[in-house]
Nucleic acid binder design. Structure first.
Lengths: 339, 339
DNA sequence: TTGTAGGCGTTATCAG
DNA sequence: CTGATAACGCCTACAA
């Protein structure tokens, strides 16, 4: 079964390719009669335009690329969800690539997408990335580009973010309002903007409430895993037995903390209160249920795509494009771990 | 900054497009000298072939489509992971679509992918799907096609599966070996093959060990959610207070069961033992830790892609293709909920 | 209202 | 070793 082409339709109908093309696109200058004939035959033969040819002519593929550090991640898979849903609604398809937190891979993938000539790229940076060459290349080529969540302030492009500093501040303030007076922080890696911001939020909050900031109470994740959570929980309880609150960079790690405390029978929230970040699904099913900061992940996906689409359309019209940053609201979800 | 084309290189070098093309593809019939000149200039101008044109000529896009019911799902996101990793390794990109368990959406998405002329399609059926028209269309068009996990026996294509019946059988046998004598089953929806098979495995196992099969002990999920787990746990404990074991279609639902039992203080595993399916990450972090059946999700992704690639290549060589089915091993992970 | 011609950028064939 | 030419399938000025 061969693919139907305009040519075939034209030949069987004994008219020109041009007319067929016009008829299918409902041009005004085609007689109703031929239009109908073409439409009928097209339906019968199940004609669909060859997208390869259309791409070549129109120079667009109605496809965008998405690069994220990890697919298997509650937050990111929700974002993916939002992006592909919104993209589909607007006639775009999404190619997904995973950088595994490796700048090297990320570079290759950007290259792949550029060569593929996608209409735009959405990305959340790997932990090591910054304003590197491959990112500069995207900007230089004027490929529509949106960063979300893990961004770099150095990059001049549209962004979808939350106010990490404020959100972290609120989380820590929440702990304090619950009576915590010595609060540790398990932070993310040194490089990513959001782990920096959450740390700053933590620092400002304690200082604001007259708890002297102590750098020894800050523990830095390398891989941001469940295991690290357990490990740091152990260190914290050993180094500072009087800690009564912990603010953790993300729920996955916080769950590790809770797991360790369960094991050694440290009571949460009685002895130590714990708050996470991101509102992973599992946070509401573990014991005790984890308090956390809710991040509108699906929404972030939707917004990211819309910002990208905006840029795609504006560039098509040759208006020169000004990047925008969208900041979404977060809120604290109070559960058992901070009661 | 315009895109570099063969033509530009040819003109600046004063040679023909043909020669440039050959030089870049390292054909033997180009002199070393011109080859070098071309290669140098190409690098300097950062030439990359226009994929739209290449697609049109070669009739392939080096892109495949993937349709799954849910992205935000531990099992599926792991499969995605395996697929995109293996695809990338082989020079393919992956477009991901989500059917949301809706046949309607699924149909549209198949159409999108066909129109996009992807080189192949990998799919896990939505709960309502069967050998429907849109699936037939894929087969009819001889588009390379692989089903994984949620398959239909009626469809004649390559498949990657586990032996759900055997795995379920083993799970129930495990409960029995731990002393359970009255075992309920929370099954998946009626249509999907894997929920049927898991049910059959349950039935065979109880019968094999001389526990009379009782259809009243079987509860059927509609949406396969955490909430349904809680709800059915409640029903089970009310309808059959003497049930001492539950085999649940998937971990998410099983976690709901555990949550309800925690709430009303039913002791797991002392009073009732619970085993799930799929080994979701959260299963190892809740209390009590959930016993489950491990399913090699990442592997399934890898195998799915490889089967697809096999078909793509064979069809290209015009050998007529015989679908294959790959069955992967599962194994029981014993944790606290069945101690 | 319809059709001709040219081009998008690449690749394959075949002649020089 | 090199290059002219056609073709992939579609779109769009411009003619007729």
């Amino acid at each position: 079964m061969k693919e139907t082409t305009l040519k075939q339709i034209a030949e069987t109908l004994g008219i020109s390719i041009t007319t067929v093309s016009k008829a299918l696109k409902n041009y005004s200058d085609v007689s109703e009669k031929t239009k109908k004939a073409v439409l009928d035959l097209a339906r019968e033969l199940q004609y669909t335009p060859n997208s390869f040819a259309v791409n070549l002519r129109t120079k667009e593929s109605k496809t965008i690329g998405l690069i994220i550090p990890e697919v298997v991640h509650h937050f990111f898979s929700n974002v993916i969800n939002g992006i592909i849903a919104e993209a589909e609604k607007n006639g775009y398809l999404v190619i997904i690539l995973q950088s595994n937190e490796s700048v090297e891979l990320e570079k290759k993938q950007v290259e792949l997408l550029i060569n593929k000539r996608v209409d735009g790229i959405i990305m959340s940076l790997s932990n090591e990335s910054n304003d590197d060459e491959h990112i500069k290349e995207i900007i230089r080529r004027e490929i529509p580009f949106v960063l979300f969540d893990k961004i770099s302030k150095l990059i001049n492009c549209s962004k979808v973010i939350i106010n990490d500093q404020k959100a972290a501040h609120n989380a820590v303030a929440h702990l304090i309002s619950k009576g915590c007076t010595k609060i540790a922080h398990i932070r993310g890696p040194v490089n990513p903007q959001n782990s920096i911001d959450r740390f700053l939020g933590y620092k400002k909050a304690v200082e604001k409430y007259n708890i002297p900031y102590d750098s020894k109470l800050v523990y830095t994740c390398k891989n941001v895993t469940f295991e690290e959570g357990k490990e740091f929980a152990k260190q914290i309880i050993n180094d500072h037995p009087d800690v009564d609150g912990i603010f953790v960079i993300t729920d996955l790690v916080a769950v590790g903390v809770l797991a360790y405390f369960n094991e050694i029978n440290v009571k949460v929230p009685e002895q130590i209160k714990v708050i996470g970040f991101s509102n992973w699904f599992m946070s509401q099913v573990i014991t005790p249920k984890l308090s956390t900061v809710d991040q509108p992940s699906y929404e972030m996906g939707v917004e990211s795509f819309n910002l990208l689409l905006e840029e795609i359309n504006q560039r098509k019209e040759m208006v020169d494009f000004k990047p925008r940053t969208v900041e979404l609201e977060t809120n604290i979800i109070e559960r058992e771990s901070t009661l």
